[in-house]
Design a protein around this nucleic acid. Structure first.
Lengths: 276, 276
DNA sequence: CTAAAAATAGAAAAAACAGTTCATTTCTCT
DNA sequence: AGAGAAATGAACTGTTTTTTCTATTTTTAG
C-alpha cells in the first residue's frame, strides 16, 4: 500500500480489499475500525487500543500498512467523515421533511426511513405492555407454536420461525406449502398456540383458519393492522399496528420490530426461570 | 458558574445566558465557539486559539468560567454532540427514552423501537444513492431474480419474494428447501440476477453460492452487515448495513426497509417506462 | 488623574501522547 | 521438528498539548 486513502469510503474499500492479506491482529483491528468509526475519530491511540483490545503499536502498524504516516494521519479520515456526515444531516433537516432536491430512488429512501421511524414511534406509544406480557406468556407456555401468515406477512412469520427455533421453542410454519395448510392447522392441539399475522387485504384463508382455531378454543396471538381486522376479534391477544398513511408506504418495519420484542421477551422469561 | 453543562444545548444556553457578564475576550471566544462547534470538537487548544484569534489561556479561562476543569473537559461536550447529532439521538431520546422504570417486556419494547429508529437513520445517512440506482437497474433488467438467504435473512428474502412478484418480476426463492439449493442456483443464467442477503455469522453455504455465481460472472446484489462480509467483495453491488451495537440488539428493521426501497424503486422505473 | 482591581498575553512547567525500538512470541517453510 | 522470518507486546523517548504562573495592559472607581 503506497498511497493513503483520503476519504472514509476509500478507506473502507481498501480495508475490505486487503483484509485477507492482513495478519491476525491487523484483521482484528480492521474489523473494529469499520464497526467503531466514531471511536476512531475521537479517542486517542491508547484509548482506542484499549477498546479494540490491541496494543497501540498495532494500530500504528495498521495505519502504516494503509499508507498513512501514523495514527494521527489516519484519524483525519475518520474525523472528516464525522463532520461531513454531520453537516449533510443538518442540510437535510434544513430542507425539511420533504427533502426537496432528492428525487427518484433517493426520495424513496428518505420516505421509507421516515415513515419507518414514525411507525416505530407509534408502535412504542400504542402497544399496551399488558398485551405484550400476555402474549409472551402464552407463547412461552405453548407446547408448539404454529405460525400462520401469507403474502406480506410471510416475512414476519419466517423471522419468527427462525428466532423462536433459536430459543428452542418448538414451532412450525403453517405456510400452506404444497397445499398442506389444512393439515398443518389440524395438528394444533389444546396445549398449543397459534401466532397469526395478516394485513389488509386479509388473506381469506388465514382469516378462516383463525376463526376455526378460535372456535376450537385454542390460544391465538395475532399481529394485524386494525381492531376491525378479522383476526383481532377472534384472537386471545391481538396487536393492532396502525400503518397510518396511504397504502403506498405501508411498511413491515413495525411488525418485524414487534415480533422481535415478543421473541426477546420470551427469551428473558426463559432465562429467569433457569437462574431461579 | 459552579456546575459544568454536560450537553451541547445546555452549554449554548449557559453561554447565551451569561454572555453579557463576560469580559471582552471571553465574549469574542464565546461567539466563536457557538459558530464553530466542529472546530471546538476536533482541534487542539492552540489551533482553536489561532482560528479564534485569542490566546490559549483565554480559552482555558473561558472553560473554567463555565465550570469545566479545563479545555479538554469542555471539548468533550462538543465531541459528544458531534457523535450523537449523527443519529439525532438527542431529539429522539426525549420522545422515547424518558421511560425509566419500565422494565421487563416494556423495556424490551423501548429498546427495540429505539435501536430500530437509530438504524433507520443510519440507513438513510449511509446508503449511497448511486448504489441504490445501480441495484434497481440490475434487478429491473434481470430476466429472473434469484433470492438467496438463510436463517435471519430468510425474512427479508420472503418479503422480497412477495413484493417483487407483485410487480410482475419473475423471481424465485433459492431457499434450499428439500436440499434443492444447488439445483436452484444452477438455474441462474447470464441474463439473471442474484439478490443475496446474509448477516453475521454468515451461513457458509450462502457465501459459497455467492462466490460461485460471482465466478460465473453473474450479476449479484447483496444486503449484508459489513464491508468485510464474504458477500460484499463478491457482489456487483452490496449494501452494508452497520448494525452498530451489540448482538443482542441486532435488528432486521433496516434490511427490511432497504428491501422495500429497492422494490419501490423498481416499481417507479417500470411505471415511468409504461407512461413514456 | 491616579491607584487599585481585573483581565490578558506570553512563556514556562506539567501532563499526555504518538510513534519507535527491541525483546518475545507465533507462524511458515524446509 | 527446527531454523528463520514475521508478527506481536511492552517499555521508552521525544513531541505535542494543556495548564499554570507571572508580567503587562486595560478597565474601573475614587
Amino acid at each position: 500500500m503506497e498511497i493513503a486513502p483520503d476519504t472514509y469510503s476509500e478507506l473502507t474499500s481498501s480495508i475490505a480489499a486487503e483484509y485477507e492479506s492482513l495478519s491476525r491482529q491487523l484483521k482484528k483491528f480492521g474489523r473494529f475500525a469499520l464497526d467503531n468509526s466514531d471511536t476512531l475519530a475521537l479517542e486517542t491511540v491508547t484509548t482506542v487500543a484499549e477498546k479494540a483490545d490491541v496494543q497501540p503499536s498495532t494500530i500504528v502498524r495498521f495505519a502504516k500498512a494503509f499508507g498513512f504516516d501514523g495514527f494521527s494521519d489516519m484519524q483525519q479520515v475518520f474525523r472528516t467523515r464525522l463532520v461531513e456526515n454531520n453537516s449533510s444531516y443538518r442540510e437535510r433537516i434544513h430542507s425539511l421533511q420533504n427533502d426537496e432536491g432528492r428525487d427518484g430512488v433517493a426520495s424513496v429512501l428518505d420516505n421509507f426511513t421516515h415513515t419507518g421511524i414514525e411507525s416505530l414511534e407509534q408502535l412504542k406509544l400504542n402497544t399496551p405492555v399488558a398485551k405484550l406480557n400476555q402474549a409472551v406468556e402464552i407463547l412461552k407456555n405453548a407446547r408448539h407454536v404454529h405460525l400462520l401468515g401469507h403474502r406480506r406477512a410471510s416475512a414476519v412469520i419466517h423471522y419468527l420461525h427462525y428466532a423462536l427455533s433459536q430459543l428452542d421453542i418448538s414451532c412450525m410454519l403453517a405456510d400452506g406449502a404444497s397445499g398442506m395448510l389444512q393439515h398443518q392447522m389440524n395438528r394444533v392441539g389444546p396445549e398449543d398456540a397459534v401466532l397469526a399475522v395478516s394485513f389488509t387485504p386479509y388473506t381469506p384463508v388465514v382469516a378462516e383458519m383463525v376463526a376455526l382455531q378460535s372456535e376450537k378454543g385454542h390460544k391465538i396471538v395475532s399481529i394485524t393492522d386494525s381492531p376491525l381486522s378479522p383476526l383481532a376479534s377472534r384472537s386471545t391477544v391481538s396487536f393492532e399496528i396502525q400503518d397510518g398513511r396511504d397504502q403506498a408506504f405501508r411498511t413491515l418495519v413495525a411488525p418485524i420490530c414487534l415480533a422481535q420484542c415478543l421473541v426477546v421477551g420470551i427469551g428473558q422469561l426463559l432465562e429467569n426461570e433457569q437462574t431461579s
